[in-house]
Design a protein around this nucleic acid. Structure first.
Lengths: 192, 192
DNA sequence: ACCGAATGAGACATCATTGTCTCATTGGTT
DNA sequence: AACCAATGAGACAATGATGTCTCATTCGGT
């Protein structure tokens, strides 16, 4: 009578598979399942055993991204301190999962079905709120809408993840590169 | 005996078709040909008459993007004046074709075949050179690599085009939004 | 009004991918 | 050693997109 705890060994690491899938799908949204499987080091059959199908894989990827991004935002404590520091914390927390996030930003295709859209809208609101807070408290400029700042944030995260993936930017620099550019811009400032 | 000049009336506007295709393909890379045709207001048959196939369409899109971007850079006279103004001019010139550019940035899939890669690398170098010039002349900060600034530029153009397409940013604001954010960053600066 | 080019609508075979299946093999556990 | 779960390899039909074709229609210029 096995009161075994059903440890569910699952040699296959879902997280790892999803990360590989994100890398490939960000690069080419039509990447076939067998390529994804190969990249993850498993067979196509096993891939299908863990994810009911392509749609389920994409869905899992979205869920993972939303979950990780949510955790990043929670960890960043966006409401505390001044907005600029909060934004720095957010970038620092989001940087490790930038790859999956980059996929989310580009894979706008499924954001039509309300369910995921809702989950994403929540995150969207939190970031927009952060930018608005910064504007209201005089830290951020007000001639750029908070909606645009949010989009720009996404764009830079995505560009950064891609640049790292392509070896054009060192992973160690990513955090600093995104935060500094977003906060201070390109121009050399005297006050510093 | 018609010494007609073969004006080739071609009621179909290739440019228009390509723009529609860019919008759809940026949104969803797997968009079927019939959807693209419908969006362009023509039949699938006609679409195939003008572009040998899906690959040819993508290829034409890339060529168009590279051509338009090249023109934008030429018009912006990147070598003249200070780098910041040159960057402003580039953004202003590139903004009208941001949609096609956004497609180019995200459709990294075909950058593998050397031919297009070469054409793109040329543009890449010119932008990178602009940022480097700005750094050497003391206008741009040097703690961010010119490679990263280039990637960030792409990312913001893409994010901007997308934001406009989604109605989150007014087309009229796009130019200002991108240039100001890129040059000055989010933070409110005193010197102004 | 005429004529030819361009188009739209639809049929059709082809192809790649997908999802499901079976069977043999591996690897860890008892 | 025996066992069971997980996996890999491959076959298979179903599906959807693609590319090509034909034929009727529309449009512009003569």
């Amino acid at each position: 009578m096995s009161h075994s705890v059903n440890l569910c060994l699952m040699a296959v690491d879902r997280q790892h598979v999803l990360k590989q899938a994100a890398a490939l799908l960000t690069r080419r949204a039509t990447t076939p399942m067998d390529e994804i499987a190969r990249a993850a080091g498993i067979s196509r059959a096993t891939l299908h055993r863990h994810f009911a199908g392509r749609d389920a894989l994409i869905r899992a990827l979205e869920d993972l991204g939303i979950e990780q991004f949510t955790q990043a935002m929670d960890a960043a404590r966006l409401d505390e301190g001044n907005a600029a520091d909060a934004l720095r914390r957010l970038i620092a927390e989001a940087e490790p999962v930038a790859g999956v996030l980059a996929f989310l930003f580009t894979e706008n295709q499924l954001f039509e079905s309300g369910e995921i859209n809702a989950g994403w809208a929540l995150l969207d609101d939190r970031i927009t709120a952060l930018f608005r807070r910064g504007q209201e408290q005089g830290d951020f400029r007000i001639d750029l809408s908070s909606a645009w700042l949010t989009e720009a944030f996404y764009g830079l995260i995505g560009a950064g993840a891609w640049a790292v993936h392509e070896g054009r930017v060192a992973r160690n620099d990513l955090n600093h590169s995104i935060a500094e550019l977003l906060l201070g811009g390109i121009r050399r400032s005297m006050e510093k």
